[in-house]
């Protein structure tokens, strides 16, 4: 699968990639999933993960896709960035997603997956001592996000609420 279009690195669902200038890195259509960006703003290197589930210990199948779970994805993001020379002490994060796409759905536990993902991501980042510089989480809207490691600006687009930059 071609994952780089022009200078945009595309991160799919349950996927994790790194980017540095002149590249930007984006993921499309975050619903209950959470997009996690980690970056070192001095080295201008960044990584993004698009996680679906809070915890890898719930995995039922043999082969684990580590980018699918908040815990393993954050561990890998951090490791990959450190390997590229990033400093653990300069590491920062921005997060977006975790919406409840269907508001009135019955008591199905799956409908709460968005908030659960957000809680897990925040807890794991806190445990790793990575500060969250910006978050746009929850609500009922899908999001498309793009991060520019040059400026550390995250752009978030939703269907009805336009674009925000942070």
């Amino acid at each position: 699968m071609s994952s780089v279009v022009g200078n945009v690195v595309k991160v799919g669902m349950a996927d994790l990639k790194l980017a540095k200038p002149p590249q930007t890195i984006r993921t499309s259509g975050l619903g209950s999933c959470v997009g996690i960006i980690m970056y070192d703003d001095r080295l201008r290197i960044s990584g993004m993960a698009h996680i679906m589930l809070p915890d890898s210990t719930f995995a039922r199948s043999g082969q684990l896709n580590r980018a699918k779970y908040a815990d393993t994805a954050i561990t890998d993001l951090l490791e990959n960035l450190l390997e590229q020379g990033a400093s653990k002490y300069r590491m920062k994060a921005k997060i977006a997603g975790g919406a409840q796409m269907f508001k009135f759905s019955s008591s199905n536990e799956a409908t709460r997956i968005g908030p659960r993902n957000v809680e897990a991501v925040k807890r794991i980042l806190a445990d790793a001592n990575v500060p969250i510089m910006f978050e746009d989480v929850g609500g009922n809207s899908g999001r498309t996000i793009e991060f520019d490691p040059e400026s550390s600006v995250l752009e978030i687009r939703t269907v009805n609420k336009g674009v925000i930059q942070a």
Partner: peptide, 27 residues
């Protein structure tokens, strides 16, 4: 079927919600 619920949004944001259950067993 459970009672229906409506959302108007990006395709992937909606579909991914329906994949959560499946995603615990595979990709």
């Amino acid at each position: 079927p459970t009672p229906p619920d409506l959302a108007i949004d990006m395709t992937m944001a909606i579909l991914s919600f329906g994949l959560v259950e499946l995603s615990q067993a595979g990709d």
